[in-house]
């Protein structure tokens, strides 16, 4: 249950359908960089519900062939240039979505149902790009009531970085409940944790409601600083500048991997 970083990276082979959280929601950058070091190929990413540096790094390094997302951006630091370049070159397939459709897809998977209905979205051209989303007439209403159905999303692996984990494999996520949904929806959850919690997280009534139980967790590795470089504004600024070109990107990533 408690393993290490190399073991986590080994559990994400080429071609994996990999779910990752938003940059503000606890991504595991340590494993991300390890996947790049190992030259993984053919990963299919699905973001919960958006991404930034993490997706841009994997795309720039040629690890990704497909991504389902509601948006990719470096926020204040600018556009995700490697994502934009890959989109322009047609080297990745992009399944464009909207945030709540991704949340609902994961929720359908955790409920074990094939789809969930969702309000809104009507009138958006996203419907034209998503033949897998269906508009039906609410079968329970007397009046016409069109509603969108989105299919369940069942990732093979959910990967994230959490503040705490205990020796039993329980992981504390606090208010980031979408990480629990992500783990429930995925076949396996792989987690890096900032710190080891000395007892059992489920025994503490204040910690338990924010805890993802070991039942859903395949492996936990203690990796202090596992969300670096997201935690360092100067590294982010450096990345945004370097990633404007593929060569600048490659140089910086080489530095991050070996420096």
């Amino acid at each position: 249950m408690i393993t290490d970083l190399p073991s986590l990276a080994s559990a994400i082979p080429d071609g994996t359908l990999l779910a990752i959280p938003a940059d503000y929601g606890g991504p595991s950058l340590a494993v991300t960089l390890e996947l790049i070091r190992r030259k993984r190929r053919g990963l299919r990413l699905v973001t919960a519900p958006t991404s930034g540096l993490q997706a841009d790094l994997l795309i720039g390094a040629g690890v990704v062939t497909e991504i389902e997302t509601a948006g990719i951006s470096l926020g204040e630091y600018g556009a995700a240039e490697r994502f934009r370049a890959a989109w322009s070159a047609g080297t990745i397939a992009v399944k464009d979505s909207t945030c709540p459709a991704l949340h609902a897809g994961f929720q359908a998977a955790e409920k074990g149902v094939p789809f969930l209905p969702l309000r809104g979205i009507l009138g958006s051209d996203l419907l034209k790009r998503r033949p897998d989303w269906k508009v039906i007439s609410n079968p329970l209403a007397d009046e016409p009531d069109p509603i969108v159905l989105v299919p369940a999303i069942r990732p093979e692996v959910a990967l994230f970085h959490a503040p705490l984990a205990d020796r039993h494999g329980n992981v504390w996520i606090g208010m980031r409940r979408e990480l629990a949904t992500l783990a429930h929806a995925s076949s396996r959850a792989l987690v890096t944790a900032e710190e080891l919690y000395p007892g059992n997280l489920l025994d503490d009534p204040l910690r338990a409601p924010g805890t993802l139980p070991h039942l859903y967790v395949d492996q936990v590795a203690l990796v202090p600083g596992g969300s670096w470089p997201l935690t360092d504004p100067s590294s982010l600024a450096l990345y945004a500048e370097a990633a404007r070109t593929q060569s600048g990107f490659a140089n910086l990533v080489r530095e991050w991997l070996h420096g």
Partner: peptide, 22 residues
């Protein structure tokens, strides 16, 4: 339009498709 124009890619639609009508 938060997605693309004139061959230029924008970040994406985020929650807009859903929230605008609601």
């Amino acid at each position: 339009n938060l997605l693309q124009a004139g061959g230029i890619r924008f970040p994406g639609s985020y929650g807009s498709a859903y929230l605008m009508p609601l």
